[in-house]
Design a protein around this nucleic acid. Structure first.
Lengths: 148, 148
DNA sequence: CTATTTTGGATATTTTGTGTCCACAATATA
DNA sequence: TATATTGTGGACACAAAATATCCAAAATAG
């Protein structure tokens, strides 16, 4: 049970967009270079983020990406869900094969509740709080801003 | 991010042991049949559970497996940890490549806290509470008892 | 001793995640 | 309108992890 690397990169990319929301659309090569991920890979990732409704994409010359919502409105959970989906944590494989555990299944229930707590906790952290949160010194945000 | 099938099966196996803790060691073929998992697969799983200290194994004729601790003392989290390990949920891959996010990393911190909530929640459910918990009707436990 | 039962290692198969490429569609702007 | 630019979607290759099986060897009850 681990968060995918894709989620980490998506997060870095989104933070870069959040930190540079003044300027309008930012091209993929710039984002890729800033967060040190290969362009070809990040390209696919951003397609997912667009489909998930986290960023807007603009085609053509001077196109690029920008956040669709305010950084305050995009939580860690939103990003995780966008990249990795929202399937149940506990698959209950046995159920499809006439599992005889009680209905409603107490195992599934326990996992669902724990997962819910997890997601609630993640929902409390947003791109904005990561950028200017308590844990982040102002100097540390440097890297997120565009190169001169 | 999903709980592995192995964890589900381990859980079923352990519940069977818990429900039959009166009789002493129970052989693998019986467990496998009871929870409807192929013997060869469950065998490997139980080796993990032994190494993790959740069950005792007895070799030789009349050998088998039994719980090492009381069902009240084995939580969902114990089982999950035994099967899937206890690595950090968020790997922070970028850190190994000179990530410039702040230290301590706020992303890692947020995930760690959420994961902690998740595990705390799982720790509150034990084999015992699954067996005679509120959510489980007495009749539903039938299947966990040895065939006559 | 002997029959039984778990062990540990090797290995095969399937599924999932990671990573790349390119023809095509959309669009700003000259 | 022509052209250069930028994202899209699909296909594909590769790597890693999960799932699954087998068997010779070790341990032990009787």
């Amino acid at each position: 049970m681990q968060v995918q690397l894709s989620t980490e990169f998506a997060l870095h990319g989104l933070l870069y967009l959040a930190a540079n929301s003044g300027r309008r659309p930012i091209q993929l090569p710039e984002i890729a270079q800033a967060i040190r991920v290969r362009e070809s890979y990040l390209r696919k990732l951003f397609q997912q983020l667009v489909r998930a409704g986290l960023v807007d994409a603009y085609r053509g010359a001077a196109g690029g990406y920008s956040l669709k919502r305010d950084p305050e409105e995009i939580s860690l959970h939103d990003v995780l869900a966008a990249v990795e989906g929202t399937a149940d944590l506990y698959r209950c494989y046995a159920e499809q094969r006439s599992c005889r555990v009680a209905r409603p299944c107490p195992i599934r229930g326990a996992f669902a509740q724990a997962y819910d707590n997890f997601r609630k906790s993640l929902s409390r952290t947003t791109l904005a709080s990561l950028l200017h949160g308590e844990a982040l010194q102002s100097e540390d945000v440097e890297w997120l801003h565009a190169p001169v």
